[in-house]
Design a binder for these strands. Structure first.
Length: 336
RNA sequence: GGACGGGUGGGUGAGUGGCUAAAACCAGCAGACUGUAAAUCUGCCGCUCCUUGCGGGCUACGAAGGUUCGAAUCCUUCCCCGUCCA
């Protein structure tokens, strides 16, 4: 829900899907419509009519993905807006100020997410900066925030280097955040490396606090991350892929535009109970997609979100019954 | 009957002697997408052969002839389409 909307779904849809929490983005909402406007409108929950929890990302990822529009130094990040080219400065304190104005439930600190692969010296320097920013964020929130209403999560960086990940995890834990995020992964490195770094971190983190792996992932990868002790994830994949005609099923991905579905009367996934699968055929959905109808986006997004949320529900259930390993290997085998 | 303008690959439409199997866009086919600058991006898109190479052969810019080393491009005739005049 980057721009205070999950593209293609109404808040009502999201409630029907049983979405527990959505993510919104500091950088985007700061540029448009502006955090002061949202504060004036009663905060982000009220503004977008979403009574359930919201997590706000800090703009750290934009530092990375808008790389040719930014300059980073220890003080913070100077961005040029991707919308009108205007220049803006984001510091750890400024990011918190915005997120406090938005009133999100979980506030992410500003971090620096760097490209993969990055060399050791650069990664070390950047991770140290992120750690320093986390300290500043914590201190700023202690002065200006309301711990009864919001909680701030720290972010661990350290690239693909085990010792840097370890050191940054330990140092961040010293700052005693209520939750910890792992950033800077799934940015181009091999999945095995993502897993190795994740395990390096989760094996050190306290069990009673949430662990959030930022920006992932594919369904079959999520099963691995959960197995490594991850509690939270966020990802554009289900919604963006939906807009691009890629649908997730219990048997793997399905590209709805493929000509083989032109006359296919079956639902996307015969085992799926979502509103789209209960009502529409592949042939119809392919037609909507290829004619560029926006109902295609709406229905495809609904299905993919149902798939993801349903899978997460089943994962929780499997964990509850001590069956995660079986569930994971069964599902991964079917997804391939 | 006459005067102009025009007929290009599935579509729209560039190209007015060699760099053109022919721009671009659309359609079609396939792929990608991971803390959302994304209803986006990439590849293929005449037929065919193989030793898959910035390879070979064939066919192609309304039709048929011609000029030229070389023609979608120039010339002739014909056939269509549009506009205007009688």
């Amino acid at each position: 829900g980057t721009a205070a909307t999950v593209k293609g779904q109404t808040q009502q849809d999201l409630e029907n899907l049983n979405a527990q929490i959505i993510l919104a983005n500091t950088y985007h909402l700061y540029l448009r419509p502006g955090h002061e406007l949202i504060r004036t409108m009663g905060g982000l929950h009220k503004f977008m009519s979403w009574p359930r929890p919201i997590l706000t990302d800090s703009g750290g990822f934009q530092v990375f993905s808008l790389s040719d529009l930014r300059k980073v130094n220890d003080a913070g990040v100077t961005f040029r807006s991707h919308i009108d080219g205007s220049e803006h400065f984001l510091s750890p304190e400024k990011a918190l100020e915005i997120e406090i104005a938005l009133g999100s439930d979980i506030v992410m600190v500003l971090d620096e997410c760097i490209e993969a692969p990055a060399d050791y010296a650069r990664t070390k320097e950047s991770a140290a900066r992120t750690l320093d920013w986390a300290r500043r964020s914590r201190d700023y929130f202690a002065r200006s925030g309301d711990a009864a209403r919001q909680m701030v999560f720290g972010i661990i960086q350290g690239g693909a280097y085990v010792d840097l990940r370890r050191a940054n995890t330990d140092s961040l834990m010293d700052l005693d955040f209520p939750g910890y995020a792992i950033g800077g992964l799934a940015v181009g490195e091999a999945h095995s490396v993502t897993c190795e770094m994740t395990e390096t971190v989760t094996s050190r983190l306290p069990k009673e606090k949430p662990r959030y792996l930022m920006g992932v992932g594919k369904p079959e990868q999520i099963l691995n991350y959960v197995g490594l002790g991850i509690d939270m994830m966020d990802c554009v994949l289900p919604t963006r892929s939906a807009r691009h005609g890629c649908l997730y099923t219990s048997e793997g991905r399905l590209l709805i535009r493929n000509s083989q579905y032109a006359r296919d009367p079956r639902p996307i996934d015969e085992h799926c109970c979502c509103a789209v699968c209960r009502r529409y055929s592949r042939a119809y959905l392919r037609h909507l997609y290829s004619t560029g109808e926006f109902l295609a986006t709406i229905l495809n997004t609904h299905h993919n979100l149902y798939f993801y949320l349903d899978m997460m529900g089943k994962i929780r259930e499997a964990i509850r019954f001590g069956k995660l390993e079986t569930f994971r290997s069964d599902l991964q085998a079917r997804l391939h």
